[in-house]
Amino acid sequence: MAEQVALSRTQVCGILREELFQGDAFHQSDTHIFIIMGASGDLAKKKIYPTIWWLFRDGLLPENTFIVGYARSRLTVADIRKQSEPFFKATPEEKLKLEDFFARNSYVAGQYDDAASYQRLNSHMNALHLGSQANRLFYLALPPTVYEAVTKNIHESCMSQIGWNRIIVEKPFGRDLQSSDRLSNHISSLFREDQIYRIDHYLGKEMVQNLMVLRFANRIFGPIWNRDNIACVILTFKEPFGTEGRGGYFDEFGIIRDVMQNHLLQMLCLVAMEKPASTNSDDVRDEKVKVLKCISEVQANNVVLGQYVGNPDGEGEATKGYLDDPTVPRGSTTATFAAVVLYVENERWDGVPFILRCGKALNERKAEVRLQFHDVAGDIFHQQCKRNELVIRVQPNEAVYTKMMTKKPGMFFNPEESELDLTYGNRYKNVKLPDAYERLILDVFCGSQMHFVRSDELREAWRIFTPLLHQIELEKPKPIPYIYGSRGPTEADELMKRVGFQYEGTYKWVNP
């Protein structure tokens, strides 16, 4: 592979701008107003304001973009700056750019259920340069409990009458099928589907988006991507930290609602779906819905739930269990780990287990898709061969690698495990991989909904998990304890083995 010439960040961002501006969906010269509902909250200060700053800094926003914060707290732009700027990672050389960014910011205080507050917000936006005809993007960085009041008031008082209007809704989209349907029906009564952007930030990850290209742009994968060759698929999300004093919020939802029903299920769809007619948003989402419709409700015998306990040999936070978090209700049975087996009941995947695993306070930070292939028929190497695996590593250190057998150097035919490896950090030294939120917010500006969740996708996802969630809430089974920093409950490994996964433990990928 030829040595790549190092590029400056300015040059890299210039390439990104060229890609972005050559499309006809990006209205570079139009006025846009980006409204952050819930501007005083954690999500706004840690993710949304920093993301908008990065896009502005790199010249990736339309030229005439204004940012308006809205929340109940009586704040000023200076207050917003004070709480969000520490997350910007701005350099001293960017000081003038930073001043320009905050000059485009404003803030309006108001209630979430008060019509007069929204009329005041609308008047404020109209007073901005060309504000009355601007395109408006409303980001709901809010708890779902206020979605209905907020969307109703936005629709009645704050819509642009000339430009387009788009609304970005953060997960969780309800707690179960019934609450999700209620919320979807409410929002759909106010906005068209092409105006609604239900954001799952995992769909903005580079390697998640790469799944489609790997599958449908490489001839070698087509013939082997089926039940005849693939023994099982494992989708993993692991965090090495616990709730760390923020367990009160987590306890309301648990690990299945927080990660599995959305992030992991979306990745499953991209692995299992048929080739779409095109890369058009609805063509892709149509195929994802077909996959979900082929999955039956989760069966309790295919589920393992766990909850982390303190590690007596650990240090600091590792010595504390979930129930030691003062914000967690006493005696909570909320799971911090889950392993679930699903089956896609169609011709391509009949009988292939899709194993979804996620948890907190585990032994490493990792998100990946792992396809394990069947054993080689007619073994001539005296059971020395391990199964081939194709691994798409989402985070950290984005990579695609194939675990395969090669001859060990020497005189004899002794096979050993090795890999074919594409590590993004080595291959793409001159490429700026956008943060997931950067990519998705740019998608909203461009009107691309491919990486957002459609209402029928959402409904099918909740259909699969709601009976299990209701059973857990009714019966309150005690989750299996696992030690902070471990791989999780051993019962999860036993479940995976029972459905056909072979864990060798003899080879570990190392970032080159």
Rank of each mutant, 00 (worst) to 15 (best):
8 S>D: 11
8 S>Y: 08
9 R>W: 10
10 T>F: 13
12 V>M: 15
12 V>P: 12
13 C>W: 08
15 I>L: 10
16 L>E: 11
21 F>R: 15
22 Q>E: 15
22 Q>N: 15
23 G>H: 15
26 F>V: 15
26 F>M: 13
28 Q>V: 10
28 Q>S: 12
28 Q>D: 10
29 S>C: 15
30 D>N: 14
30 D>F: 09
31 T>C: 13
32 H>R: 11
33 I>P: 01
35 I>T: 11
35 I>P: 05
41 G>W: 04
42 D>F: 01
42 D>S: 05
43 L>E: 01
43 L>Y: 04
44 A>G: 04
45 K>G: 05
45 K>D: 02
45 K>I: 08
45 K>T: 13
46 K>Q: 02
46 K>D: 02
46 K>F: 03
50 P>R: 10
51 T>K: 05
51 T>R: 06
51 T>L: 02
52 I>P: 04
54 W>A: 07
54 W>M: 10
55 L>D: 05
55 L>T: 08
57 R>Y: 00
57 R>G: 06
57 R>C: 07
58 D>C: 12
58 D>L: 11
59 G>F: 05
59 G>H: 07
60 L>D: 02
60 L>Q: 08
61 L>A: 01
62 P>S: 08
63 E>S: 10
64 N>G: 08
65 T>R: 03
67 I>M: 07
67 I>Q: 03
68 V>W: 02
71 A>V: 01
74 R>H: 11
75 L>P: 05
78 A>Q: 14
78 A>M: 12
79 D>I: 06
81 R>T: 07
82 K>Y: 12
82 K>T: 13
84 S>C: 14
84 S>F: 09
85 E>D: 07
86 P>E: 11
88 F>I: 14
89 K>F: 13
89 K>H: 11
91 T>Y: 10
91 T>D: 09
91 T>E: 11
94 E>M: 08
94 E>R: 01
96 L>D: 13
97 K>A: 10
97 K>D: 08
97 K>Q: 15
97 K>I: 14
98 L>K: 05
99 E>G: 11
101 F>Y: 06
102 F>M: 09
103 A>Y: 10
103 A>R: 13
104 R>S: 06
105 N>A: 07
105 N>R: 03
106 S>N: 09
106 S>V: 13
106 S>P: 02
107 Y>A: 07
108 V>G: 02
109 A>E: 12
110 G>C: 07
111 Q>E: 13
111 Q>D: 10
112 Y>D: 00
114 D>W: 10
114 D>M: 11
114 D>G: 11
115 A>H: 15
116 A>E: 14
117 S>R: 09
117 S>V: 09
117 S>H: 10
117 S>W: 09
120 R>M: 13
122 N>V: 12
123 S>N: 14
123 S>P: 00
123 S>F: 10
125 M>V: 14
126 N>A: 14
127 A>V: 14
127 A>F: 12
127 A>H: 15
128 L>H: 11
128 L>I: 13
129 H>N: 15
130 L>W: 14
130 L>F: 12
133 Q>A: 10
134 A>D: 10
134 A>C: 13
136 R>L: 05
136 R>T: 06
137 L>Y: 08
138 F>M: 04
139 Y>N: 06
140 L>I: 09
140 L>M: 15
140 L>A: 08
141 A>I: 03
141 A>H: 04
141 A>N: 04
142 L>F: 02
143 P>G: 03
144 P>N: 03
144 P>F: 02
145 T>P: 09
145 T>E: 00
145 T>H: 06
146 V>E: 06
148 E>R: 12
148 E>D: 13
149 A>W: 12
149 A>S: 15
150 V>S: 14
150 V>E: 01
150 V>K: 00
151 T>E: 00
152 K>E: 14
156 E>L: 14
157 S>M: 15
158 C>P: 04
160 S>R: 09
162 I>G: 12
163 G>F: 05
164 W>M: 08
164 W>I: 10
166 R>N: 05
168 I>G: 06
170 E>Y: 01
171 K>Y: 04
171 K>Q: 03
172 P>M: 01
173 F>G: 00
173 F>R: 01
174 G>Y: 00
175 R>F: 11
175 R>Y: 13
177 L>R: 11
178 Q>E: 10
178 Q>C: 15
178 Q>M: 14
179 S>H: 04
180 S>D: 01
180 S>M: 01
181 D>I: 05
182 R>G: 14
183 L>R: 01
184 S>L: 09
184 S>I: 13
188 S>H: 14
189 S>A: 12
191 F>C: 05
191 F>P: 01
192 R>S: 11
192 R>D: 13
193 E>F: 03
197 Y>Q: 04
198 R>F: 05
199 I>E: 02
199 I>D: 00
200 D>H: 02
201 H>S: 01
202 Y>F: 08
202 Y>M: 00
204 G>N: 01
204 G>Y: 04
204 G>A: 04
208 V>D: 04
208 V>R: 00
211 L>I: 09
212 M>F: 07
212 M>H: 00
213 V>L: 10
214 L>N: 00
215 R>E: 01
216 F>D: 04
216 F>A: 04
216 F>T: 02
216 F>I: 06
216 F>V: 03
217 A>V: 04
217 A>W: 03
218 N>Y: 01
218 N>W: 01
219 R>K: 09
219 R>P: 10
220 I>D: 00
221 F>K: 01
221 F>W: 15
223 P>C: 08
224 I>S: 10
225 W>K: 00
226 N>Y: 07
227 R>D: 05
228 D>I: 07
228 D>E: 15
230 I>K: 00
231 A>N: 10
233 V>K: 03
236 T>A: 06
239 E>G: 04
240 P>A: 08
241 F>M: 08
242 G>L: 02
244 E>S: 14
244 E>G: 09
245 G>Q: 09
246 R>F: 05
246 R>D: 03
246 R>E: 02
247 G>F: 07
247 G>I: 06
247 G>V: 07
248 G>C: 05
250 F>I: 03
250 F>N: 01
251 D>A: 06
251 D>F: 03
253 F>Y: 13
253 F>H: 06
254 G>S: 07
254 G>D: 02
255 I>D: 00
256 I>S: 02
256 I>F: 06
256 I>T: 09
